[in-house]
Each structure stands twice: as structure tokens, then as C-alpha cells.
């Protein structure tokens, strides 16, 4: 098997570590060699967070090399762009369209680019973008906090992961506090569904 590299990018507090842990656990359950990198402490607290999940027999390093990501999961638009160096024309970018405005923008020292601009720039690097309204789907599942799991669902639907959907569900059952399991499983399904449907309908919009 060739390596599978996933980069998850977002903002501290969005549940990136949990999402990456779910993926890593599912991979480990199926017997794959896996590495998940995390950054704790000062780097969280509402700051930019990036997590790499890598699967493969020859995987040693915790982080992906530039241009080597199979999928970039952007839990926030600008954060996907911040990490776009990991993309190549082979890469899919899953883009949550819900922006979180950084303090620098609120205070007027920086500007937040429009979604169109962000997508245009992402296209300079990545072969494919899929936009997802994860906040809306998460609300449908029960709470906005489940956006991370919506995005995981979409990631599974790319078929770029070697693990089965059921294994990922089992990892969620183990890692998410019991009272939120049902909601997260629903969020996963909704995220999974959006990609399968949009794939047909919006082909010209999605492809470069």
C-alpha cells in the first residue's frame, strides 16, 4: 500500500485533535501502521492548529512533506489555505465554509479574504475542492460542535482512506463521551452523504 497522508487544519477548540484521534484509532484497529501528530499548549487557545494523520508501512515521520497530502481537511477556510503547501494537483481539499474571524481581523490589523479568493488560491495548488457547510449539517445532527465529525464523514466519502466506515464509527463510539455518540454518528453520516451527492451534481464546479 502506498502512504495515505491527511492534513487536518483549523482553529483551537474545533475538535481537530479528537478528529485526528478517531482516524488514527480506526487505522490502528485495522492493523495499519499509523502516525498522528498533535500540538498542545500555547499553540491551541484559539490559535491555528494543524494535525497530520499518516498511514502506511513506510511511514515514520509524524508530519507530511510539502505536496504530499492526499486530502487536506479544512475545518476553517483560511486555515486550509495556511496549510495549502501540503497539496499538489493530486490532492483533494475538503473545505468547511464556516469562517472563524481571527483577533487580528477584528482589531483591523489584517483582512479576511473572501471565500471566492480563498478558493481561487487553493486551486493554484490542489486538484479538487469540495465545499461543505459543516455548521449547517452539524446543527441538523444536533449541535454546531459536531462540525469536526461532519468533515470526517466527508473525508471517508473521498475513498482515500484505507479504513472502513464502520471502523471509524467504532472509534467514535470509543472516543466520544457517551452522550454525544449518537449526534456524532449522525454528523458523520451527513458529512458522508454530502460528498456522495455533490460529486455527481457539481462536477464542473468542483473540478479545476
Amino acid at each position: 500500500m502506498s502512504n495515505c497522508n491527511v492534513v487536518l487544519a483549523g482553529v483551537g477548540g474545533q475538535g481537530i485533535l479528537l478528529a485526528a484521534n478517531v482516524l488514527g484509532s480506526a487505522a490502528a484497529k485495522e492493523g495499519f501502521n499509523v502516525r498522528v501528530s498533535e500540538i498542545h499548549g500555547m499553540a491551541q487557545r484559539g490559535g491555528a492548529v494543524v494535525c497530520h494523520m499518516r498511514i502506511g508501512d513506510r511511514v515514520h515521520a509524524p508530519t507530511t512533506m510539502e505536496g504530499e497530502a492526499d486530502v487536506i481537511v479544512g475545518l476553517e477556510p483560511v486555515e486550509a489555505l495556511r496549510n495549502i503547501k501540503f497539496a499538489s494537483s493530486q490532492t483533494w481539499v475538503l473545505l468547511n465554509i464556516e469562517a472563524i474571524i481571527p483577533s487580528t481581523v477584528s482589531l483591523g490589523t489584517a483582512a479576511y479574504p473572501s471565500l471566492q479568493t480563498i478558493m481561487k488560491m487553493i486551486r493554484l495548488f490542489a486538484g479538487k475542492i469540495v465545499t461543505i457547510d459543516a455548521a449547517d449539517l452539524a446543527r441538523k445532527a444536533g449541535s454546531v460542535i459536531a462540525q469536526n465529525t461532519v468533515m470526517l464523514g466527508a473525508l471517508v466519502a473521498t475513498k482515500k482512506l484505507p479504513m472502513r466506515l464502520e471502523t471509524i464509527k467504532n472509534a467514535i463510539r470509543e472516543l466520544v463521551p457517551p452522550k454525544y455518540v449518537k449526534m456524532n454518528l449522525e454528523a458523520l453520516e451527513l458529512g458522508y452523504g454530502v460528498l456522495r451527492n455533490s460529486d455527481e451534481k457539481r462536477r464542473d464546479e468542483l473540478d479545476k
Binding site: G47, P102, V105, T117, M121
Partner: peptide, 20 residues
Amino acid sequence: IDEKYTQVSESVPPRPPVLC
């Protein structure tokens, strides 16, 4: 990739960690 990234990086607003 480096060359392209220099072009886009200016458009990415910094997101330093902040007090909660």
C-alpha cells in the same frame, strides 16, 4: 510550491493564540 505559497501567504491573516 514555495514560489506559489509566497504569493498566497500574504492573504492569510495571522491567527495567534489568544486568551479564551
